[in-house]
C-alpha cells in the first residue's frame, strides 16, 4: 500500500522540483539549477495567461452545461422512472463510460465535420456546424464527462425522501419552488462531487482539443508540447502545477460541503 505514497507522491514532488530547474537551450539537457524562471515566464508571457484563463473558463462552462443536462435526467431516473426503468437508465448512462474516450471524442469529429450530421440537421434552421474550435471542444467535453455528473446526482437525489416533495407541495410550493428551495440545497454536495470530475478532467484535457478544437490551445496542449526529449520539460512541469493548484483549492473547498464522502 506504500506504492501510492512512494511512487505517486514522489513523482508529484519530483514534478514540482523539476519545475524549478532549467534547461540548457543548446544541449537540451536539464540543468539542476534552482530558478523561478519557468514560473516567471508562465505569469508574464501574455499568451500563457490567456490560455490559463481560457482553460479555467472552459472547465467551468463544461461543468455548468453538464449540471444543467444531468439534473433533469437524474431527477427523472430517481423520482419518476419505475424501478425497472431505473435499472435500464443507469445502464444506459454507464454504457458510454465503457466506450473508449477516444472513440467518443472521435465521434464528435464526425458530427462536426463539414457536411456532417450537425451541419445537415442545423441547415434547415439557417445554422451551420460550429466547426472545429472552442465551442466544439466545450460540447465534446461536456458530452464526455456527462455520466460523471449524472451518477452522483442520481445517487444524491435517490436519498431525498419522497415525503419532502409532498410536504413542500402541501405547504403550497409549486414544483419549481420545491426544486429550488428544497431539492437543490440537498443535492448540492452531490453536484460538487460530480463537478470535481468534470472540472478536473477538463483542466487536463489535450486530446479532445486536438481532435475537435482546431487550433485552440489549452493548458494541456502547452504541457504536452513542452514534454518529450527535445522540449522544455521543466517548463511543462511548471505549467502542470497550475491544474494541481486549482484542483487542490477546489478539493479544499469541496471538502467543506461534504462532497468528498459522496465520491
Amino acid at each position: 500500500m506504500l506504492w501510492l505514497g512512494v511512487a505517486y507522491l514522489a513523482a508529484l514532488a519530483a514534478l514540482l522540483i523539476t519545475s524549478l530547474w532549467t534547461q540548457n537551450d543548446f544541449t537540451g539537457n536539464i540543468e539542476r539549477v534552482w530558478t523561478l524562471d519557468n514560473f516567471h515566464d508562465l505569469f508574464t508571457i501574455p499568451v500563457y495567461r490567456t490560455i490559463t484563463f481560457r482553460t479555467i473558463v472552459l472547465a467551468a462552462s463544461v461543468t455548468v452545461v453538464d449540471a444543467l443536462l444531468a439534473f433533469p435526467m437524474a431527477l427523472f431516473m430517481a423520482k419518476v422512472a419505475s424501478p425497472r426503468w431505473q435499472r435500464v437508465l443507469v445502464i444506459a448512462v454507464l454504457m458510454p463510460l465503457w466506450a473508449s474516450y477516444l472513440v467518443k471524442a472521435y465521434a464528435w469529429r464526425g458530427m462536426f465535420s463539414s457536411s456532417g450530421l450537425v451541419e445537415s440537421v442545423a441547415a434547415p434552421f439557417g445554422l451551420g456546424t460550429p466547426g472545429y474550435g472552442l465551442t466544439a471542444t466545450a460540447i465534446t467535453l461536456a458530452y464526455l464527462w456527462l455520466p460523471f455528473m449524472i451518477l452522483p446526482l442520481y445517487a444524491g437525489l435517490e436519498r431525498v425522501p419522497d415525503s419532502l416533495f409532498e410536504a413542500s407541495a402541501d405547504l403550497g410550493a409549486g414544483s419549481w419552488t420545491t426544486l429550488r428551495r428544497v431539492v437543490l440545497p440537498m443535492v448540492f454536495p452531490a453536484f460538487v462531487a460530480g463537478s470535481i470530475f468534470t472540472f478536473s478532467l477538463t483542466l487536463g484535457d489535450f486530446i479532445a482539443v486536438k481532435i475537435v478544437g482546431g487550433t485552440t490551445q489549452l493548458l494541456g496542449n502547452v504541457v504536452y508540447d513542452n514534454q518529450g526529449a527535445a522540449n522544455n520539460l521543466p517548463f511543462a512541469c511548471a505549467v502542470a502545477t497550475v491544474p494541481i493548484v486549482v484542483m487542490v483549492l477546489y478539493l479544499a473547498a469541496a471538502r467543506r460541503t461534504g462532497a468528498l464522502e459522496q465520491l
Binding site: A14, L15, T18, L233, P243, I244
Partner: peptide, 22 residues
C-alpha cells in the same frame, strides 16, 4: 483519491519526469 482527482496530464507528466529525469 488524488490520482483520480488530479487531471491525467499531471499524473502522466509526473511519471514521465520521475522515470526519465529523476
Amino acid at each position: 483519491l488524488l490520482p483520480i482527482a488530479l487531471p491525467g496530464i499531471v499524473t502522466g507528466l509526473a511519471f514521465q519526469n520521475g522515470f526519465r529525469t529523476i
